[in-house]
Every structure is written in C-alpha cells, then in structure tokens.
Computed example of a mutant assay.
Amino acid sequence: MTPEQFIDAALWFPEAGESEPFGPGALVYKVAGRKMFALLTGGGGGAPATVNLKCDPELALELRQRFPAVTPGWHMDKRHWNSVLLDGTVPDDELVEMLTHSYTRVAEGLRRADRDRVLAVLGDDAPPLPGTDGS
C-alpha cells in the first residue's frame, strides 16, 4: 500500500480528520477531532513510509510475529501501538484490517455521544481496499 492509498483509507472513516501537529512530514489522523488512530511518517527519499496504529496488546504481539514489517510503536506506548512499514510486505487487506481495528479501538474510548455517533455510522463497513473504489 502506498502512503497515498493509506491516506485515502484513513480518511474514509466517519469523522476522520488529518492534521500536522508535529510539523511537516508527520500526518496525524484523529476520530471526531479528538483522539489519534493513525500517524503516518516518512516516505521521503525513496524510503518506505511508516504508520503507527493502535492495537489490542495480544493482537499486537501476534502481528509482530506474523509480519517482519510490524514492530512495536515508534515513540508510542509499545504495548498498545504498532509501527507498520509500508514496504509492500504486509498485504493491503491486512493493513486495512489493522487500520479499521485502530479506528474502532480509539472510537470506543471517546465520550459516549461521540462514540455512539461515529460507531453507528461505521456499522459493519470497512474502507475499500486500495484500487477497488474505481480510482
């Protein structure tokens, strides 16, 4: 998955927003303008980009064992966050699943009114895989 495809997938979620609070080169994705569910960095000079995603601690360990490109979250709580190198070794459907999991975990931590609103809109949907939305 390219960084551009990741951006499209991250912004697909209800009330997802993008900002650069840490300056250029670090894109933060928040749900309902409140809590971060993804952080996209790097990708310049031919090096692959990296995305940090929130994850259930047990699942985080499993993903790290399955994919060499998944490591403990860089500059994050390493128990609850994974860093995923966008080098093409993690299948797009797995990455979309990780992104959906991160968004849902963060949305579940919102105050009740925000949580109920964004999760009701999300339902059982997941973002389309890159390249399947007609683009």
Rank of each mutant, 00 (worst) to 15 (best):
M1R: 06
P3L: 10
E4N: 02
Q5F: 08
F6V: 14
F6M: 15
L11N: 06
W12I: 13
W12D: 13
F13M: 09
F13L: 11
F13P: 00
P14N: 12
P14D: 13
P14I: 15
P14T: 14
E15F: 07
A16W: 05
G17P: 00
E18G: 09
E18V: 07
P24N: 10
P24A: 14
P24L: 10
A26D: 08
L27K: 08
V28P: 00
Y29I: 14
K30T: 14
V31Q: 05
A32F: 05
F37L: 14
A38G: 15
G42T: 02
G44Y: 08
G46P: 05
G46W: 11
A49R: 00
N52D: 14
K54R: 12
K54H: 06
C55V: 00
L59K: 08
A60K: 00
A60F: 02
A60L: 03
L61T: 14
L61Q: 14
E62V: 12
E62L: 12
E62H: 06
L63Y: 10
R64W: 05
R66V: 07
R66W: 03
R66H: 07
A69W: 01
A69S: 06
V70W: 00
T71M: 06
P72L: 03
H75E: 15
M76K: 04
D77P: 02
R79Q: 05
N82S: 08
L86A: 03
L86P: 00
D87I: 01
V90Y: 02
V90R: 03
P91Q: 14
P91E: 15
D92L: 12
E94L: 15
L95E: 07
V96A: 09
V96G: 01
E97Y: 03
H101L: 15
H101T: 15
Y103K: 05
R105N: 03
V106F: 05
V106T: 13
E108M: 10
E108Y: 01
R111S: 08
D114K: 04
D114E: 15
D114R: 05
R117N: 06
L119M: 07
V121C: 05
V121I: 15
D124P: 03
A126E: 15
A126S: 15
P127S: 13
P128H: 09
P130G: 08
T132M: 09
D133Y: 04
